[in-house]
C-alpha cells in the first residue's frame, strides 16, 4: 500500500506517515512522562501557534516563487510596537499598530521584489538584519510588559467552549489559508505565477501584484504571530521570533511545499509545524540536553526533507 502511495504523490503523504510514526514513537517511549496527556498535546499546539501562522503565509510566499527571511524580525517589531502602544492606548489600537507595522514592512519588501525586481532572498535578508536592529533600538533592548487582560486573553490564555484561543488562532489560520490557497482565483494565480511567471503573465495574471500580495500576507501574518507571542508571554522583547525563521521554513518544506515554487500545501505546513513542536516537546520530555536536542532535531528534519524532496525524475 505504501508503494502505491509513493507511486502517486510521494511528497504529499510522507509527512503524514512520518508525523504519525514519530507521534507513535513518543507515545510509547514517553508513556510515563505525560506526553499523551490532553494538557501536553494542547500545549504543543499552543506553543506552535505563532510558527503555524507564519508557516501558512510562507506556503504562499514559496509557492509564488519568492522567500521571506524577514518574518522573524517582523515578529519582534510587531510585538514591541503593540506593547508600547498599549502602554498609552486601548488594546485594539495596539493590535492595529502591530499589524500595521507588518503590512507596511510587507509593502516595502513586496514593492522592491515585484516592481524594482530585486531577488526576494536579498531584499528580505537585508530587511531581516535592518529590522532586527530596529527591534533592538526601539526599546533599548528592554522588554515591554503587556498588562491588558483582554489582549492577553484574546491573544494568549482565553478559551472558547473549553478550546484555548491559541488553538483557535491556529485553526483559523490554517482554515482560511487553505481555502484561499486552494479554492480562490488568488490562490490559482499564486500557483501559476510560481510555476511559470511568463505563462501566468501571458494568461493575463498581474504577476507583480500577486508577488506583492504574497509578501504583504507574509509580513502581516508574522506581525500576527508577534501579537500571539506577546499575548501568551504577557510582554514583548526583541528576541521574540529570533529563531523562528528556520523552524517555519523547515515546517513548510517538510509539509510538501516546493522551494522552487508552483506547488504547496497548507495542511502539510500545519503538520510540519506540529511536527517541529512535537519534536521539541518530546525531546525535552526525554531529558535530552539542549545540544543533543538540536542534533537529533537536525537529523530528523534532514530525514524528512530527504524523503519529501527526493526528485523522482532525476
Amino acid at each position: 500500500m505504501l508503494s502505491a502511495l509513493r507511486a502517486t504523490e510521494p511528497a504529499k503523504y510522507v509527512i503524514y506517515v512520518g508525523f504519525l510514526a514519530i507521534f507513535a514513537l513518543f507515545a510509547v517511549a514517553l508513556r510515563d512522562s505525560g506526553f499523551l496527556t490532553t494538557a501536553n498535546l494542547l500545549n504543543i499546539i499552543q506553543q506552535t501557534t505563532s510558527v503555524t501562522v507564519m508557516a501558512v503565509a510562507t506556503v504562499f510566499v514559496l509557492t509564488v516563487g519568492e522567500i521571506d527571511l524577514s518574518i522573524g524580525s517582523v515578529v519582534a517589531i510587531a510585538a514591541l510596537v503593540a506593547a508600547v502602544t498599549m502602554r498609552e492606548f486601548p488594546w485594539p489600537l495596539g493590535v492595529l499598530a502591530g499589524l500595521a507595522a507588518g503590512v507596511a514592512i510587507g509593502f516595502v519588501n513586496g514593492a522592491l521584489v515585484a516592481y524594482v525586481r530585486l531577488p526576494s532572498f536579498l531584499v528580505t535578508l537585508a530587511t531581516m538584519g535592518l529590522l532586527a536592529g530596529v527591534a533592538r533600538s526601539l526599546t533599548n533592548l528592554q522588554s515591554v510588559p503587556v498588562e491588558d487582560d483582554v489582549f492577553n486573553a484574546l491573544f494568549g490564555s482565553a478559551a472558547l467552549l473549553g478550546i484555548p484561543s491559541l488553538v483557535l488562532w491556529s485553526v483559523a489560520a490554517v482554515g482560511i489559508g487553505h481555502f484561499v490557497f486552494r479554492e480562490t482565483r488568488f490562490g490559482a494565480h499564486v500557483h501559476a505565477t510560481g510555476d511559470n511567471a511568463g505563462a501566468a503573465r501571458a494568461g493575463g495574471v498581474k504577476v507583480e501584484r500577486i508577488r506583492l500580495a504574497c509578501l504583504v500576507v507574509s509580513s502581516t501574518c508574522a506581525a500576527l504571530a508577534g501579537l500571539l507571542y506577546a499575548g501568551r508571554l504577557h510582554g514583548a522583547r526583541y528576541t521574540l521570533g529570533e529563531t523562528d525563521l528556520l523552524t517555519v521554513i523547515a515546517a513548510v518544506i517538510v509539509g510538501g511545499t516546493r522551494l522552487s515554487g508552483g506547488a504547496g500545501s497548507v495542511p502539510g505546513a500545519l503538520i510540519g509545524s506540529l511536527l517541529m513542536g512535537m519534536l521539541n516537546n518530546g525531546l525535552i520530555l526525554m531529558g535530552l540536553s539542549v545540544s543533543d536536542q538540536m542534533i537529533v532535531r537536525g537529523f530528523i528534519i534532514l530525514a524528512a526533507v530527504a524523503l519529501t524532496l527526493r526528485d523522482r525524475t532525476r
Partner: peptide, 15 residues
C-alpha cells in the same frame, strides 16, 4: 506559455 505543474483545465482557464 503553459504552467507545467498545473492541470490542463487550470491552464485552459488561466487568468
Amino acid at each position: 506559455a503553459l504552467a507545467d505543474g498545473q492541470p490542463v483545465y487550470m491552464n485552459m482557464f488561466l487568468g
